[in-house]
Amino acid sequence: MMNKTPLQGTPTLELEHVTKVYKGGKRAVDAVSLRLGAGLLGLLGPNGAGKSSLMRIAATVTRPTSGKILFDGTDVVSRPNALRAVLGYLPQDFGVYPHLSAREFLSYLAAVKGLSARSARRRIEELLELVNLTEAGRRPLGKYSGGMLRRVGIAQALLADPKVLIVDEPTAGLDPEERVRFRTMLSDLAEDRVVLLSTHIVSDIESVASDIAIVARGRLLRRGAPEELLREVDGQVWETVAGPAEAAALRERHVISRTLRTADGVRLRLLSAAPPGGDAVRVTPDLEDVYLAVINGSAGRSLRQAGAGAGR
């Protein structure tokens, strides 16, 4: 297990046994503990896993039912402004004032953040340039496309040069080229900041996250560096070509990672601790295999043992 010690002067955000139970008894987050220093932590999980609840809790928007959140040692559940002053938060869904231009909207948010007028003006121009909305900056936000609004959201998250950046499904609405550039930017930002990125798209994380946490049903199932996680399913990923009947039987027995219909039959990539039979060949695992293994609990004992290290 890799165990990062935060550099002196770099921020730390700690979640200690955080639980959120909504009205009606729905336990969205269940005793999650995470310690984050400078760097990018990718939070992976299926829809409804509790990722957004966890992100909202970390961003002080939602109060946990129990547990602590410490920013540089300060309890931000009782003193949220200690984190909010240095926080950039991009929720999964957010609204805008549709008749304000991007420039006016960001100016308003800068005033709410308490930025000085001069600093805000300069920062807004730079950020509009960053997200390539300088030209559109005077148009009302109600006339923006979903992707353009997402870029406004990214700009507002960076307004106050945050020490902690929490972004929830940030790439929705961005085109493929923008996704790549955005991920690179996040990676750069993570050099001396806490960056928490949540997604259910594995490719969003595998290229930039040095640290990955997998959650499901509100619980933190696994946490580790990509290479650590990959090692845990090494030898358990197989590829085989099967006929329709055999393919159906394999689907019943194993977690299928990919399916491709070819002229020779159905090419299946599956997870199995033991050889699944036939002419199956062992292949090198990728993060998608790890994710499926953890979520489906099919990686067996090795994963469960490694689970003890979750929540460093």
Binding site: A85, K113, G114, L115, S116, A117, R118, S119, A120, R122, R123, E126, L127, E129, L130, V131, N132, L133, A136, S145, G147, M148, R151, I154, L158, L159, A160, D161, L174, D175, E177, E178, R181, F182, T184, M185, D188, L189
Partner: peptide
């Protein structure tokens, strides 16, 4: 149609809080 976002270098300016 809008040109894609650059997402290049992170803004260098310091975000100062007002006095």
């Amino acid at each position: 149609p809008q040109a894609p976002a650059v997402f290049g270098a992170v803004p260098a300016s310091v975000a100062r809080l007002g006095r």
